[in-house]
Design a protein around this nucleic acid. Structure first.
Lengths: 347, 347
DNA sequence: TAATTCTATTTAAGCGGTTAAGTAAATAAT
DNA sequence: ATTATTTACTTAACCGCTTAAATAGAATTA
């Protein structure tokens, strides 16, 4: 195996010092390099096929405390005990990841993707890998973990509803989305509207959508009825179950807002199994606009978030903050829009 | 910002040298450390909350050429010019990624995920990041790129049908899958069977499935008819288009094998739009068993590959090869099974 | 008892960059 | 003409770890 080519080799080839090579390649602002020298170096790099060693760069640049440049951004995703292997169970995590990765790469960053479970901290990953930034998906750093503010690297929380405003944050306006969805049903003449969701954790995404549901009811002066609320888990199967419960009950439900498309799709199937038709017998609106929403029959009316925009926003923040330590705390709320298909009709 | 804690700090705390700390933490085989010393070191690590610096580890261990230990595995995904941002357009890449990441992490490796387009080589990423292994998805390293054999790190090709057998490889038996699907239709009495797929690139996944289709026909002594072959692109919309073409033609088609579920799902919708029923008027079988196959109506009969098993296999190879340089070249073919739902019926 | 081997550890030389500080020549200011 | 400043570099000290080689004491062997 041939020896790896390092900056010294390039320096020798170009007839300069290794420092000069570093200055040229990094376009170091504080130092001036003549055009000729720059070109000599670049030519040598080209000729030798030199690729810098990131480990050395990271280590070398870590002399100034907290200023290491690993050009690595971590994307960490919490994993529940139950579903350890299913990090990307949510299908649009894939889209999100694509968007973040692409945007980050354009700025010279690579993406380290890791699940994290309770016993290992993402802070350790950040330290260990000298991460330049970290993206935390759907998880709020626990308050009792004193370390959490000392990460010392740009951190952006995605889809988190913590009260603390220490970190950057990107999320959708889930509460408004819940409102939009419910209002849409109300505008179509519905008054007995079920709310179907996974577990409603305090300050979670579902909780926000639930609040939005209540907002819309309040606005329309429709009394909130807890009997119309069905909570289980985010999954196709639960949609089927919920449909059965709704069909069996006699609460006079004419429409349902499912806080996740996958539940909504299950409900359509569930109602069909029971001989009920959507939207003729019951209207359904979902949330997320996953791929299946378009494909299922009838097409699912739902609330769409622009996942690509979300990924771009996240990447932009993390990259900007990584490059510029004075980058101010930023909170971005991705707008939502209603996508009308066939699952809702006038009462 | 407090100073980072390094191995010297731990050494001082434990009253030993930094080398000893290294030996303890890495459980270096060639060196014996007494139990007491080990415990002193471990206690110091605990007390100080020491997390090793991976960049230093990588750099330090790179003294032996080609033996750096970054504990990083790269997962690279080719990106076409057209769809740059859509790295994970294929929904089960997400599942695959989850499986690989989880398995790799259990062995102490992190995963670097990156798209690659023509102008930047995954080899550069491997060099730059001192990757311990690289997973290449659906792309065969170009022959003309001489470098490709010099990567010098374990490489596993996923879903590649190159002729060269230099690398590890994991794939499904797409040809057999195509055969299975087609045979299933034949066994249900169909003789005029359409083949619907995206672009058939030589030695690509689709090509293999196409060959399997022909295998089954040959076995059943059904003459191959090019008029029954419809190629477009892998997408829901194309399924709709293909359904229209099939319905308009009068080739006597009674069944179709769609080489991708997403096309099959589109076809179901397409036929329905035209007033044709699946499976009453036409039987459809897909490939992949994506999530939508279960959800759509009627449920799609399809060929399933165990994506989790695939991810595990890939991780196992790459990790084994990274840890043991004598690990022999391995080729794994993930078995396929037919999942019967409602989209196929007897003629 | 001396020579040898084993055990447990330290010393120190890298790994490949970065970057503060130094230097020499060219240019500008006094 | 002399000093100050700027330009364009080089030198060398680090970054935090690994690991070959050195070392010293204990155990074993000759």
């Amino acid at each position: 195996m041939s020896k790896r080519i390092n900056s010294k080799d390039v320096a020798r080839e170009a007839g300069v010092s290794a420092a000069t090579v570093s200055y040229v390649l990094n376009e170091t602002k504080s130092v001036t390099i003549s055009k000729e020298t720059r070109e000599k170096v670049l030519a040598a790099v080209q000729k030798l096929g030199y690729v810098p060693n990131q480990a050395a760069k990271t280590l070398g640049s870590s002399r100034i405390v907290g200023k290491s440049k690993s050009n690595l951004i971590g994307l960490v995703i919490p994993q529940t005990e139950s579903g350890k292997e299913l990090m990307f169970d949510n299908p649009f995590y894939g889209d999100f990841l694509s968007a973040v990765e692409y945007a980050a790469r354009q700025e010279g960053f690579h993406l380290l993707v890791s699940g994290v479970n309770a016993d290992q901290s993402y802070i350790d990953i950040a330290k260990n890998r000298s991460l330049d930034g970290i993206i935390i998906l759907g998880m709020y750093p626990s308050e009792d973990n004193k370390e959490y503010k000392q990460i010392g690297i740009p951190t952006v929380l995605v889809d988190c509803y913590g009260t603390d405003h220490f970190f950057h944050s990107v999320r959708t306006d889930d509460r408004y989305g819940g409102y939009l969805a419910t209002r849409h049903l109300i505008q179509h003449g519905h008054k007995r509207i079920a709310f179907v969701s996974g577990e409603v954790k305090e300050s979670g995404v579902t909780d926000m959508r639930f609040l939005g549901y209540q907002d819309a009811l309040r606005e329309a002066r429709i009394p909130y009825d807890p009997n119309l609320v069905f909570t289980g888990y985010v999954g196709y199967q639960y949609g089927i179950e919920a449909a059965a419960k709704i069909a069996q009950g006699n609460a006079g439900i004419t429409a349902a807002f499912a806080a996740a498309d996958i539940i909504a799709v299950g409900m359509i199937k569930g109602f069909r199994n029971l001989g009920l038709r959507v939207p003729e017998d019951i209207s359904i609106i979902g949330f997320d606009d996953i791929y299946q929403a378009e494909i299922c029959d009838p097409g699912l009316t739902t609330i769409r978030q622009n996942i690509k925009e979300k990924g771009n926003a996240v990447a932009k923040i993390i990259v900007s903050a990584a490059k510029n330590s004075t980058f101010p705390k930023t909170e971005i709320v991705i707008p939502l829009e209603i996508v009308e298909r066939e699952s809702v009709r006038n009462l």
